[in-house]
C-alpha cells in the first residue's frame, strides 16, 4: 500500500540532500563550512566565485531541469493515458536542440555565447507554434502525431547540420552538446531558463485533478466537468516552456521524463494528482544524482549527463518491465 505522505517527505529530504551534495562537490577542494561561507559571499574571492558562479548554477539547473523532466513526463503520461509518453514526444526538445545546433554550426555561439541557449529557445517556440497549428483543436491523437512529425523534422535537420559540419571538431562540438550536460553553466543560464521553467511549472502544476478524471477517458472526464481543451493547451504549453528552456541550456537529457513517473507510482500511487509533485521531486533527485555521478566517478573524462541518465534509466526501465511481468503473471 503506497504511503504518499511519507514518500513525499522522504523525496523532499533526498532532493535537499542531493542539492547540498551538488554544492559541496567539485575539484576546488572546499570544505563544507568554507563552501557555505563562500556561498554567502564570505571568504576568498576564488571560493566565492566557485560557489556562486560554478556550483550554484549547476545545482540549480540540475534541480530545475530534473523537476521539469519528471513533472512534464507525468503530465504527458496522464494526458495521453500512455505509460510510454515522455517530454520528447511533442518534438519541442528536438526543435530546441536544432536551434542550439544551428548556433554552434554558424559560429554564432563562438561570437556570442548566449546565442546558443537563445537559439534553443527560439527553436522551442517555433516547435510549439507549429505543434498547435498542426494539431488543431481536435484529438490527442493528432497532437501526438504532430509532435512526432516535428521531432522527426528537427532531428533530420540536426543530422543535416552535423553532416555539413565544416570540420571534425565542429561536428564533435555539436555531438557533445547534444548529449546533454550541466557543466560550465553560469547564473546567466539560470536567469535565461528560469522564468520559462517556472512558467511551465505554473501551467503544469494545477493539472492534477483534470488528469485524474482523464483516467476514465475523455468523455467521462468532460462529463465530470473537466475543460479538456484548456487542459490540453496548458499541458502542451507548460511542457514546451519548461522542456524547451531546459533543452536550450542543457542539451537533450533523455529517460528521466519517461522513467521517473514509473518509479514514483509504487511510492505514491498512480493517481496523476499525486504523481505530479512526486515526479517533480523524483526527477530533480535523479538528475542531481546523475550529475553528481558524472563528477565523482570520472571527474577528468567529462562524461555527459544525458549519457548517464540513459545508462542508469534504461536498466531501471527493464527492471520495471520485469516487475510488471511478474505482477501480471
Amino acid at each position: 500500500m503506497p504511503r504518499p505522505g511519507l514518500a513525499m517527505a522522504l523525496l523532499g529530504l533526498l532532493v535537499a540532500g542531493l542539492f547540498a551534495a551538488a554544492l559541496l562537490t567539485g575539484p576546488a577542494g572546499l570544505g563544507p563550512a568554507e563552501a557555505i561561507r563562500a556561498l554567502l559571499g564570505e571568504g576568498g574571492a576564488g571560493a566565492v566565485l566557485v560557489m556562486r558562479e560554478i556550483r550554484l548554477p549547476r545545482a540549480l539547473l540540475g534541480l530545475m531541469i530534473g523537476a521539469s523532466l519528471g513533472l512534464s513526463g507525468a503530465v504527458l503520461q496522464g494526458l495521453l493515458r500512455n505509460p510510454l509518453a515522455e517530454p520528447g514526444l511533442i518534438g519541442v526538445s528536438g526543435a530546441a536542440a536544432l536551434g542550439a545546433v544551428l548556433a554552434l554550426y554558424t559560429g554564432l555561439s563562438a561570437a556570442f555565447p548566449l546565442a546558443l541557449p537563445l537559439m534553443g529557445l527560439a527553436g522551442a517556440f517555433a516547435a510549439v507554434a507549429a505543434l498547435l497549428a498542426l494539431a488543431g483543436p481536435g484529438s490527442m491523437l493528432t497532437l501526438i502525431l504532430a509532435g512526432v512529425a516535428i521531432g522527426a523534422v528537427a532531428s533530420a535537420l540536426s543530422a543535416l547540420v552535423l553532416n555539413l559540419a565544416p570540420n571534425p571538431f565542429a561536428a564533435l562540438e555539436i555531438v557533445f552538446w547534444m548529449l546533454g550536460s550541466l557543466s560550465d553553466r553560469s547564473m546567466t543560464h539560470v536567469a535565461l531558463a528560469g522564468p520559462f521553467i517556472l512558467a511551465g511549472w505554473a501551467m503544469l502544476g494545477g493539472l492534477g485533478r483534470g488528469l485524474d478524471a482523464l483516467t476514465l477517458g475523455e468523455d467521462a472526464a468532460a462529463s465530470m466537468g473537466v475543460r479538456l481543451g484548456r487542459l490540453r493547451l496548458l499541458a502542451i504549453c507548460g511542457t514546451a516552456a519548461a522542456i524547451g528552456a531546459a533543452t536550450a541550456v542543457a542539451g537533450v537529457i533523455g529517460f528521466v521524463g519517461l522513467v521517473v513517473p514509473h518509479l514514483m507510482r509504487p511510492l505514491v500511487g498512480a493517481m496523476p494528482s499525486r504523481l505530479l509533485p512526486a515526479s517533480a521531486l523524483g526527477g530533480a533527485a535523479m538528475l542531481l544524482a546523475a550529475d553528481l555521478a558524472v563528477r565523482l566517478i570520472a571527474p577528468g573524462r567529462d562524461i555527459k549527463l544525458g549519457v548517464v541518465t540513459a545508462l542508469v534509466g534504461a536498466p531501471f526501465f527493464l527492471w520495471l518491465v520485469l516487475a510488471t511481468r511478474r505482477r501480471l503473471a
Partner: peptide
C-alpha cells in the same frame, strides 16, 4: 459551463476504460 453540467448530469460511457491502477 462544464462544471455546471457535471452538477446536473452524470455520465457512464460505454467503454470501460481505466488507464491507471488507482484504488
Amino acid at each position: 459551463s462544464p462544471p455546471a453540467r457535471a452538477r446536473r448530469a452524470a455520465f457512464l460511457p460505454q467503454g470501460r476504460e481505466i488507464a491507471w491502477p488507482v484504488s
